Computed example of a mutant assay.
Amino acid sequence: MESAPAADPSAGTPLLCRPVALRGTTLRNPIVISPMCQYSAVDGEAGDWHRVHLGRFAMGGAGMVMVEATAVTEQGRITPGDLGLWDDRQIPGLRGIAAMLTALGAVPGIQLGHAGRKAASQRPWQGHGPLGAADAARGEPPWPVVGPSPLPVADGWQLPAELDRAGLAALVEAWRGAATRALEAGFEVVELHCAHGYLLHQFLSPLANRRTDGYGGDLAGRCRFPLEVAAAVRAVWPADRPMFVRISATDWIDGGWTIEDSVAFSRDLRDLGVDVIDCSSGGMTGVSATAAAIPRHPGFQVPFAGRIRREAGIATMAVGLILDGRQAEAILRDGQANLVAIGREALADPNWPLHARQQLCGGGFDGWPEQAGWWLARRARALDRRPD
């Protein structure tokens, strides 16, 4: 008689508290810190700000910490303060960050992007507009921008030069080179930025892409260049390491990119060996990364992750106003996504993952860094002993 299968010791454990395996990489939990631009690099190089900013999330218990949008060319920076991986000199600073994140128990990830027609902009706290004379006077002049078509992002912004075939081929090589440098720096996960109105999203959306040369027109034409870039990155990224792609699941604009387009694009990415679709939205109009005139409520983008997971047959990551552990757990339990990404909530509370673990799993300060956990456990005992 066959013996009964062994009981799964994690069966009663909330999903938010369980490890997640992706290829040869295991996250200690399905909580990912979203890439959040800090606009604080010098010549594309990471510094002390980036180490402290990212390290606190690893100490806070996240399963993976994703480094912000990192430019694959100097021209592809959003602002003069963007991180870059277009040059070998940018590797050491990021190598130190990847090693630190790993030592603190988080999987290090990095997002690679190009701003396209949204490049050469001011930092948000300096106006968020196109770089101009006042910026040049302080040593940050504008630079020429490119795009799929000669359409500016908004009135008053530069007219982008339309990329020709040679320019497209050079950018494929730039992404390949940046991915190779990311690997040398020690990152476990690479994410391709195809969202928020930046270059690859500009190719996808008919609102920004008016080409007639095979890289525009119908859905297949508009997806062609982003898929070429994805294939190039997957080719140099080791088979045992995961690759993500962040998309804007919809432009939220009539005549723009739609959720149906996203499902079809995600199937193509799956077939190229992409592992996870990171489901954001918006950003095609206006300079803000996620600009869209739509009502926002907790989990407003989660249905996109659910639909892509079901219809494209690929793992997804949900992002956008995920506020607490119970909400995140419900997203995972309902099968809407495999991972949850936290951004601004983590800025407000870098220990969000640890607090979510306490909320769902109890355990006091188990799992907190020893250097902090013993203090907090001692404080908790003292508070419990207070007279009523």
Rank of each mutant, 00 (worst) to 15 (best):
F300N: 11
D213A: 07
W252C: 10
A292R: 04
A182G: 09
R296M: 11
F203S: 04
I277E: 00
R246I: 00
T290M: 04
L272S: 05
E188T: 11
T250N: 11
R246D: 02
G221S: 07
D271H: 11
R181E: 03
P206T: 06
M284C: 14
V190H: 00
V287R: 12
R241A: 13
P206Q: 08
H196E: 01
P206G: 02
T290V: 07
A292Y: 07
S248F: 00
S281A: 15
P298H: 09
H201A: 09
R270P: 00
A208D: 12
F225A: 05
V263P: 06
I247M: 04
P242H: 12
A170I: 04
A170H: 12
C194R: 03
W252A: 12
T180S: 14
A208K: 13
D218Q: 12
H297I: 13
D275K: 05
I259K: 10
L272Y: 03
T250Y: 14
V190A: 10
L200P: 04
E260W: 07
A239H: 14
A231S: 14
S248M: 00
F225M: 07
A293P: 12
V245N: 02
I259S: 15
R222D: 00
L204K: 11
A220Q: 09
V287E: 13
F244Y: 15
L219P: 04
L207I: 04
T180A: 15
C223D: 02
P242M: 08
C223Y: 06
L272N: 01
A178F: 11
E228A: 07
A230L: 06
S248R: 00
W237N: 10
T258E: 12
T258M: 13
F203L: 11
P238G: 15
T180K: 15
H201R: 06
R181F: 10
T258Q: 13
T212F: 08
I277D: 01
Y215L: 02
A292W: 03
E184Q: 12
I253V: 08
Y198H: 10
Q202T: 02
G186N: 04
L204F: 08
G286D: 11
P226S: 01
I259G: 13
I294H: 06
T258A: 09
S262V: 06
G273N: 05
R224A: 06
V245Y: 01
G177F: 08
A232R: 06
A249F: 01
D254K: 11
T180F: 10
E184R: 14
D251T: 02
D240K: 11
A292M: 05
R246Q: 03
A239N: 15
P295Q: 08
G216E: 01
G299W: 07
H297F: 14
N209S: 08
W237T: 07
C279R: 07
L219C: 06
F244A: 09
V263E: 03
A230W: 03
D261E: 05
R181S: 08
W237Y: 08
A169N: 15
V172G: 07
T212A: 11
G282Y: 07
A178W: 01
T285Q: 15
F187D: 04
V190T: 01
G299K: 04
V236I: 08
D278E: 04
S288I: 11
A239F: 13
A178Q: 05
V274N: 07
G299L: 08
P206M: 10
L200W: 01
A220G: 12
R181M: 12
F265V: 00
H201N: 15
L269C: 04
R234G: 00
